[in-house]
Amino acid sequence: MLTTLPLAFAVLVAGCATRAYTPGALLATSTLDAPAVTVGCLDIGVGPHTDPEVPVEHPAVRFDVGNRCLRGARVDFGSIEAVGFYEDGWVPLHIRDPRGEVHAGTLDGRAQIRQNFEFTPEIPRERAPATVCFTLDAMTDGVTTAGHPTRHCIPVPVPDQGDVS
């Protein structure tokens, strides 16, 4: 048994050493269709998400969040301000949260998560918006705006009705 322990050690260490988020990793994958920004300790990647359960007029958006810091960082998806550009202009969007479960939490140091959200327009629409923009300043602590909010308004192409599979 003792001869197998070093091998077991190596497997366990290797298996547990792959979870850490590397600061900037999400930024490195940033594209026009799936941009990423840094807000405080957080690298935030945003991209369109498709889900057959979500109506096409409700944009579904993927948020990848990585903590650049060693300490835990507050993540509050509920603070995201979103607007969608529909055929008749910009309409505020809200995270669909029928159970009221979305709350702020602490993302562990160097941890990474992915959450997909469905956004509903404040005024009902029949088609998907062409673009969705987000303001992410309030998602975490330690973001100094000094009276001039740094707005990360990220255009996210949302798949049209015909693109949803």
């Binding site: 979500v54 579904a60 709350h103 562990d108 469905e118």
Partner: peptide
């Protein structure tokens, strides 16, 4: 779960990543 979109996920709770619960 047939969906992985918050609000449509049935089997898991939102915020299982929240370290304050760890």
């Amino acid at each position: 779960d047939v969906s992985d979109v918050v609000g449509r996920i049935q089997c898991r709770r939102f915020g299982d990543w929240d370290a304050t619960n760890t």
